[in-house]
Amino acid sequence: MSIFIDDSTRLVVQGITGRDGSFHTSQMVEYGTHVVAGVTPGKGGQHFTAQNGTRIPIFNTVEEAVEQEGANTAAVYVPPAFAAGAVMEAADAGIAFVVAITEGIPVLDMTRAAQFVRDRGARLLGPNCPGAITPGVAKVGIIPGQITTPGPVGVVSRSGTLTYEAVAQLTAAGIGQTTCVGIGGDPVIGTDFIDTLRAFGEDPDTEAVVMIGEIGGTDEQEAAAWARENLEIPVVGFIAGQTAPPGRRMGHAGAIISGSSGTAEEKMKAFEENGIAVARRPVDIRDLVRECLGT
């Protein structure tokens, strides 16, 4: 089992002919994801050929991709100026799970788009996220497939490459994953830590969760308190940014300590107070997960 994506995922790639969209479509196809359609306005009727030769029909609108190919999940690789619009288009077309990879979408655009998606009962992952992967089954986004392996651990993170680091170490130690989810580094995102922890809690195969947070906001603190009350499986936590100065954006738009709020220290304290094992170094994540699983 897994969360958010599985073998029934039928993916439409928005921005399939762009530089990032085309590269990652090939990667997703090779991984085994059912990529059923692409959307690029003005290129409807053409086909996209993945590196392994798979031909994918291109449509002008997501609505057509849903009607003709039964797409139920969308990956958005559209440039920032049009990305919030693409997210809303997907939700409007009845897509249930929209994954926004694009970085640099204006925050006020996202306040509207995130609300729009929720109003239609759909789920948004991201933006500014690496997407999600269910090892051995499907991936939506840009997480490298070769660093993952199937197993009992759920991974959720605000970061991209730091997640790869942690996942690669788990995989190297023979500890596999149910699903790895990157929720994104922006201040306004669709799916948050609590949404993802809830999904892992409902997944019978997930036996432990790794939660990788960073400075900025209070999402980790709230998730820690929620997990204590609602989650029966153990959680291992890591927070990046212990050495980050206040008031400076550390790469991610959302990674900023405002005043005295959102520090790594405050988040690690919230983890500890709520029974989450805190890894001090990335390498400790693997060892703590091992302890949790009793292996």
Partner: peptide
């Protein structure tokens, strides 16, 4: 470093 999260984690590890 490549990636904001990994960059922060690397800085933290330097300190560690």
């Amino acid at each position: 470093v490549n990636g904001a999260g990994l960059a922060m984690a690397t800085m933290d590890l330097v300190k560690t």
